[in-house]
Amino acid sequence: MEKRATFSNASIGVLFVAPQILLVFTFFYWPTGAALFWAFTLERPWGGGNEWVGLDNFRQVFADRAYWASITRSLVFAGATTFLAMGFGLLLAVACDRGLKFYQGFRTVFVWPYAVVAPAAALAFRFIFAPDAGIFSALVKSNPEFWNPAQNGYHAMVMVIVCYSWKYAAYCFIFFLAALQAIPRSVIEASAMDGAGVLRRVRDIQLPLITPTFFFLLVISITDSFQDSFSIVDVMTDGGPAKATEFMVYKIYFDGFRGLDYSGAAAQSIVLMFLMIVLTFFQFRFIERRIHYS
């Protein structure tokens, strides 16, 4: 028999869950409900209530080529940052797990980026990538075209991706390292006795055994890259130049709070929510099947 704590008085139980319910309601259901309401209505220009417009807002959003472009950019951003962050996180974690020289020090340092708030990191990277004073300044002096994220959209995209990946690699690193260290030492030793070298061990033993963590990070990374990119974009590029770094979330903010098109922005956020649900669903449906939890 499973043992559970039970409360003879139902009201005590309700009291215990009340704070959580309140939080979830205030910060999730209420805004979601409001967004849904706005997405299907249009505010009168001079105030005085909302008018039901059905799917008009969505039609408008999907008819907008700029919106489709922002979806493409978001997907590129999600793909690139997930690949880079997980790749670097894994690389560093494997190196730390090997216990190479000074790894204790590095282990601490590798975690720090995650502790830095995104706007601060973005500001730092703005200086690092500044064409006139940053790491590329010497090259820019001889060839002004070489690096200019303020004018070149590709450069701006690269800059935002690098900054985000730098921060997220630390997050992936923590999880990968924890997963690697959970593998019994003797299993690794057994494979060493079986003749496998370092890379072979990583490929045949360690990677297959951390696939659950891999999958978790994949889902989280992709989902987060849609949402968390906002502050970095806001500080580094304002979505520019010429909307080259305007991702879905930034466009929602821009259209809603700068353009004051609440209804359009609300429709966009509903679309974003569905996109994330669909992506996550597909990951669980098709990738999770290849994972063996031990």
Partner: peptide
């Protein structure tokens, strides 16, 4: 791997994601 020893561990240290055949044959595969 260059010493020509084989070891049996206290906790067996089998590869949990491989079948018995793959476990036994891993050294040959490598």
């Amino acid at each position: 791997r260059a010493r020509g020893c084989a070891m049996v561990f206290q906790n067996y240290a089998l590869y949990p994601h491989m079948t018995v055949a793959e476990n036994i044959g891993y050294a040959l595969k490598v």
